[in-house]
């Protein structure tokens, strides 16, 4: 979704994580326009040419032509995100994207004197509660998130990723995939190697 003009309170998107909502507030505060998950980029295809892996950066900052991906995942899981990010950069070299790690976000909150928010906004405790209809039934049983399960071989994004999820994303995906030329399609098996680059300390 896109922010309306200045002075008009924007309708907030349903953020997947409380840290994303906090970053949106920070961007609002500094008058930086943003859109939330506007595009999905295919990064892996089956041998049949079907998209089997994709990447949806959390934010796009149109005035800066910059995508921002925010992750507060444990470092084991960040490795997978690093790999996806590198693949994205290989396939779409014209895209500018920055990855905000948990440490970066922690330092950002520290800079603003908001250290009390760190525990509240990072890791699994920062997962936003999905909105529930007023007439919803009893609270469902709590389910462990992937981060809690600490399954480094599972890629949480892969579980929900599919073809481009918005018309704009689909158009971009097709365009970018064509632009990627000889690079794709790529069998996803070839991407399932370990990331040799360790995440930052």
């Amino acid at each position: 979704m896109t922010q309306p003009a200045a002075g008009v309170p924007p309708a907030r998107p349903a953020f997947a994580h409380a840290s994303e909502a906090e970053l949106a507030r920070i961007l609002d505060f500094y008058d930086v326009r943003w859109t939330y998950e506007p595009d999905t980029f295919p990064i892996g295809w089956s041998l049949d040419g079907e998209v089997v892996e994709s990447f949806s950066p959390d934010f796009y900052l149109p005035d800066l032509d910059l995508y921002v991906e925010l992750t507060t995942l444990k470092q084991k899981l960040v490795r997978k995100k690093n790999r996806k990010l590198r693949r994205l950069r290989e396939l779409y070299p014209d895209i500018r994207i920055k990855l905000f790690y948990a440490r970066d976000f922690r330092m950002l909150l520290l800079k603003f004197g908001r250290m009390a928010l760190v525990d509240e906004l990072t890791g699994t405790t920062g997962q936003a509660t999905p909105p529930r209809p007023a007439d919803a039934g009893p609270e469902p049983e709590p389910v462990l998130s992937l981060a809690e399960l600490e399954l480094p071989e599972l890629d949480p994004d892969l579980l929900v990723a599919g073809p481009a999820t918005t018309p704009r994303g689909r158009r971009r995906g097709r365009r970018r995939r064509r632009g990627a030329g000889e690079a794709g399609p790529v069998a996803v098996e070839a991407l399932a190697t370990e990331d040799p680059d360790p995440p930052p300390a």
């Binding site: 909502a21 906090e22 505060f29 928010l117």
Partner: peptide, 14 residues
């Protein structure tokens, strides 16, 4: 002014 928002309230603009 510096950002000082909380998780539950909007802190407006700089």
């Amino acid at each position: 002014s510096s950002y000082g928002g909380t998780a539950t309230e909007s802190s407006g603009l700089v």
